[in-house]
């Protein structure tokens, strides 16, 4: 016989903390990350040194910054693939303005202004014109890259101002320990973890991605939420581009090629569902770190970069397949 009404009403026993933890995707990712670190420490003596570990954090910072932006776009139910071209493009106003004015803040302002314009265009196309976000941002990705080539004539624009603070931004270390880009990426990560958890706007993003119709009925402005997410994503891609440009010491016309896919890979690996509404920024950060440690460690083992790509691809598929498998088991 079916359950009696009384039974149906009885509160379920609260799941134990351990069981809750085990269900969390972040814990699985953390275990993966630790396993990787242990493996590489055993395989290479120069891996587990403070210098190398902080280096990896520095290398991971670009994907971390841009990944936060892409993750919230994906959580809102859309995607942004224009970030690679954009990260490359912001170097142009940055370096050009610095060369003219010898001012880093003005250069950064120019770079972020370009990012803002691109974000507004992406947001308008997707949220207000209703163009599929993959198509819209794929379009802006090509347009921006084409614009870079046209403007630079397929050459890099060298930094001729030689500002010390510009060099330090991408290459210096905070207290001679943590690379500035890593510090910046952790601050941005912390801010957005706070926003997603504690601000109504963060919750609106999840609601809009989880079920836009319900979100609309709850009185949320679905289009505005998506618009803002795409603007944030562009601005963060701009920040990543500024750090990249400082690292390279110039505006390089091919900078950021393929960056969007590294970032999307890390976001998906971090457990953000491409269907929207599900995921956490802690997971995204772990996804970024896993891919960064993997590339660093495999490099130390002298594995050719060609093979690194193959391994990375395999791991992404395996992780997502595992996740899907787990979900199906839970459903049954």
């Amino acid at each position: 016989m079916p359950q009696s009404p009384d039974l149906a009403l009885a509160p379920r026993p609260a799941p134990s903390i351990l069981a809750t933890l085990a269900r969390r995707n972040e814990v699985a990712l953390l275990i993966c990350l630790l396993a990787l670190i242990i493996f590489f420490s055993l395989a290479s003596s120069s891996f587990l040194t403070p210098r190398n570990l902080t280096n990896v954090l520095g290398q991971a910072s670009l994907a971390m910054v841009a990944g936060v932006g892409v993750a919230i776009v994906v959580m809102s139910g859309e995607i942004d693939v224009s970030i690679g071209s954009l990260a490359g493009a912001v170097g142009i106003p940055l370096v050009t303005i610095m060369n003219m004015t010898e001012s880093l803040p003005l250069g950064i302002a120019g770079a972020l202004l370009l990012a803002l314009v691109v974000g507004v265009v992406n947001g308008y196309l997707v949220a207000y014109l209703g163009i599929n976000s993959l198509i819209a941002t794929l379009g802006t990705m090509f347009i921006i890259r084409g614009g870079i080539y046209l403007y630079t004539g397929q050459r890099s624009i060298p930094d001729t101002a030689y500002l010390e603070e510009f060099f330090q931004l991408g290459n210096g270390r905070f207290f001679d320990f943590l690379p500035y880009p890593a510090l910046i990426s952790l601050i941005i990560l912390a801010i957005f973890i706070y926003v997603m958890r504690m601000r109504p706007f963060g919750r609106q993003i999840y609601a809009v991605g989880g079920n836009p119709e319900v979100a609309r009925l709850a009185g949320f402005d679905v289009r505005r939420v998506k618009f803002i997410c795409l603007v944030i994503s562009a601005l963060l891609a701009g920040v990543a581009g500024i750090l990249l440009s400082s690292r390279l010491g110039s505006a390089v016309h091919v900078a950021g090629l393929g960056f969007e896919f590294q970032v999307v890979a890390a976001v998906v690996l971090g457990g953000v569902s491409l269907a929207g509404g599900v995921g956490s920024l802690v997971g995204v950060a772990l996804g970024v770190l896993i891919l960064s440690f993997l590339s660093n460690g495999l490099g130390m083992l002298n594995l050719a970069t060609e093979w690194q790509l193959v391994v990375t691809g395999g791991i992404i598929i395996a992780a997502v397949a595992f996740d899907e498998f787990k979900r199906r088991n839970q459903k049954q």
């Binding site: 079920n211 119709e213 319900v214 709850a218």
Partner: peptide, 10 residues
């Protein structure tokens, strides 16, 4: 509404 208007993940 008759159709449930809740966010299942929340």
């Amino acid at each position: 509404f008759q159709e449930i208007a809740l966010i299942p993940e929340f």
